[in-house]
Amino acid sequence: MSAADVNEDLLVRDEAPGFADTPANDSSDRDYVNSLARGLEVIKVFTRRTPKMTLSEVAQATGMTRATVRRFLLTLVREGYVETNGKHFNLRPKILELGFSALSSMDIWDVAQPIMNDLSEKLQESCFAAVLDHGHVIYVARATSNQRINVGITIGSRVPAHCVSTGRVLLSALPPDELYRQLDEITMTKFTPNTVTSKVQLRSIIEEVRLQSWSIVDQELEIGLRSLSVPIRDGQGKIVAALNVCCPSMRITPEDMRTRVLAEALEASNNITRALQI
């Protein structure tokens, strides 16, 4: 089957009665494109920890059949978003266009980038901005220092929210009902001996973060990596992202994080908010 045939097959199946398992009398469900949603699920299984996957691995991760996954992957290959060596599939840089097109229209990143650059230079550490996405965080901006060792997080990196400071800051900004819903969906994967894997404990931590407006995570995603995050607020005071400073543990102590790094990060966050109000 050619890639063109794949596209035609998907279109026919999508328009066929009963293709989407949704009630016909619900207008919101009637507008829901099931094939698009499933295609996005295929894209999302590729992460920093699983950058290359076989067809069977993608099928297992998504819960779809191999035949369905094959059609989606071949379509993505044809469109230039995925490449394959015949056995493994991986995302191509073109996939970032999907996010950059949206981010480029948000003035907040134009405002935040120079402030993040100044923060990184002042602390001589890597700085990032992240947004929440269904139990994960996506890093959407970065600034690196002149240090030989910088944190290897790139724009577009997607990591579980439960074990990073950005995730805890962003989860703390959610209304209670939405927070409980997202926590129900999170798989509490244990990445290091320090990773919090109890949802009861995580809820307690998030409540503390809500009260203090900052979070420090010590080597829960990776051994040797400490991070601190504070909220980024828009001109109306709504939390729209998290500002993050990542530090190798051999370079920055927990006390340094709670004092010098926290003070500088809060000032940078406040500067972003003030600039958005002008």
Score class of each variant (00 low, 15 high):
Ala173Pro: 01
Glu97Val: 06
Arg38Val: 13
Lys238Pro: 00
Thr273Leu: 10
Arg226His: 15
Glu185Gln: 13
Gly86Val: 07
Glu178Asn: 03
Glu267Trp: 05
Ser105Tyr: 09
Arg233Asn: 03
Ala268Met: 08
Ser204Glu: 12
Lys44Cys: 11
Phe72Pro: 00
Gly39Arg: 03
Val261Tyr: 02
Gly39Asp: 00
Thr54Phe: 07
Glu121Arg: 15
Thr154Tyr: 10
Pro23Cys: 14
Thr195Asn: 05
Leu171Phe: 04
Asn7Met: 14
Asn85Pro: 00
Asn7Asp: 10
Arg181Tyr: 13
Glu222Leu: 12
Arg258Val: 00
Asn194Val: 05
Pro93Lys: 14
Glu79His: 08
Arg274Phe: 04
Met116Phe: 03
Ile272Ala: 11
Arg71Ser: 11
Ala67His: 05
Pro160Glu: 12
Glu220Met: 06
Met106Lys: 14
Tyr139Ala: 05
Leu132Ile: 06
Pro254Met: 06
Val58Cys: 11
Val140Lys: 01
Val245Trp: 02
Arg203Asp: 02
Val140Ser: 01
Ala16Gly: 05
Asn7Glu: 13
Leu243Gln: 08
Glu267Leu: 14
Thr144Cys: 07
Leu74Arg: 12
Arg203Ile: 09
Phe46Gln: 06
Gln201Val: 14
Glu220Leu: 04
Arg258Ile: 00
Ser229Val: 01
Pro175Ser: 11
Ile43Trp: 02
Val261Arg: 03
Pro114His: 15
Glu264Ser: 13
Tyr180Ser: 15
Arg48Pro: 00
Tyr32Val: 01
Arg78Val: 01
Pro248Ile: 08
Ser213Glu: 15
Arg274Pro: 00
Glu267Asn: 11
Arg48Asp: 09
Gly156Asp: 03
Glu208Arg: 11
Arg30Val: 06
Met64Val: 03
Trp109Val: 10
Glu267Cys: 06
Thr253Val: 09
Trp214Thr: 00
Ser101Met: 12
Leu202Thr: 05
Phe19Ile: 00
Trp214Tyr: 15
Ala268His: 04
Ala24Ile: 04
Glu8His: 10
Ala59Glu: 07
Arg38Thr: 09
Pro254Ser: 07
Ser227Thr: 12
Arg158Val: 03
